[in-house]
Amino acid sequence: MPGPIRLGLSRGWLEVREFVREWESVVFTFTLPSLVLLLFGAVFDGAFDAGMPAVDFYLPGLIAMGLMSVSFQTLGTGIAVERERGGLRRLRGTPMPPTAYFLGKTVLVLVLALAQLVLLLGVAALVHDAAMPRNTAAWATLAWVFLLGTVSGALLGTAVSSLARNARTAAGVVVVPFLALQFISGIFVPVALLPDWLLDTASLFPLKWMAQGMRAAFYPDGFSAVEPSGAWDLHLVALALGVWCAGGLLLALTTFRWKTRKDG
């Protein structure tokens, strides 16, 4: 038998092929952040008073939203559907080790996240000539926030998938809190306008920290003054996302179910 890593990579390639065959999922997953970026650029162009073009202002937050979508939302709903259809139970009965299944999901999420990032950067640069990260350090910040944020979102989505009673309720369990987090995490509403109690609530989840890290990568240094602390606080971003990676792994390991509740 092949080893778990080889099986996991093969499983990941299968996951990617299965995902792209569902064109509705591809369109919904990848078009929303880019569509919002295009709309905001068109609606607020020339009427945006933030010291930068509207596209430059919203791009970091929409990147964070896109990465959270392809990790948290994709796995949170997708795994619930697989469990409901009996796919997980059948996989558990095969000689494939469980680690290969989770490695396959990791490969899927990283491929989707990279594609989402490239698409958003391409749309922003080609359509609106948006500003990109200004130096090597900013690109490095983009890279580690991308990695930690995507992993934490994927682990949280895996854990949340077990909360849904069935595939029909999975969308509500995953999409509703994700939508609420977008409005309190600095994605659509500037953090300077949010009440402290909402920011404190958002700080308990990874999306707020992903958006803050992305702003540090894309915004000029002087714009750190708009943050609640007056600084980017990248050490706190790394700490929060790292804690969510560890905590998400613990939640996923302790809550993951191969069968539905009615199957026992």
Rank of each mutant, 00 (worst) to 15 (best):
T150L: 12
E24T: 15
V151R: 07
V176T: 10
A80D: 11
F72G: 03
V243M: 14
F30N: 08
W23Y: 14
E84V: 02
L103D: 02
S69C: 15
Q116D: 12
V36D: 01
D49P: 02
A113Q: 07
L199R: 13
R6V: 04
P133V: 10
A131Q: 11
M68L: 15
W258L: 05
D56P: 09
M1L: 10
A125D: 03
D45A: 15
V36R: 03
P228F: 01
F28D: 00
G149A: 11
R168I: 15
T106G: 13
V55D: 07
G61L: 04
T136Y: 03
A130C: 00
R17D: 05
W197V: 08
L7T: 08
G122S: 15
W144A: 00
L59S: 11
S25L: 03
L91E: 04
A216I: 00
T31C: 11
L194M: 13
G230F: 01
R89Y: 00
T260K: 06
P190H: 07
K105A: 05
G172Y: 14
W23Q: 14
T77P: 13
L103S: 00
G230D: 08
P53Q: 08
L163A: 10
A164G: 04
G122W: 14
A240D: 01
A164D: 03
E18I: 01
G78N: 12
F178L: 15
R261H: 06
L239V: 11
V243G: 05
A80G: 10
G51D: 07
A137G: 10
R92T: 00
F72R: 09
I5P: 00
Y58F: 15
M1V: 05
A164P: 01
S71C: 15
L91W: 00
F205Q: 13
A159P: 01
G46S: 06
K259S: 11
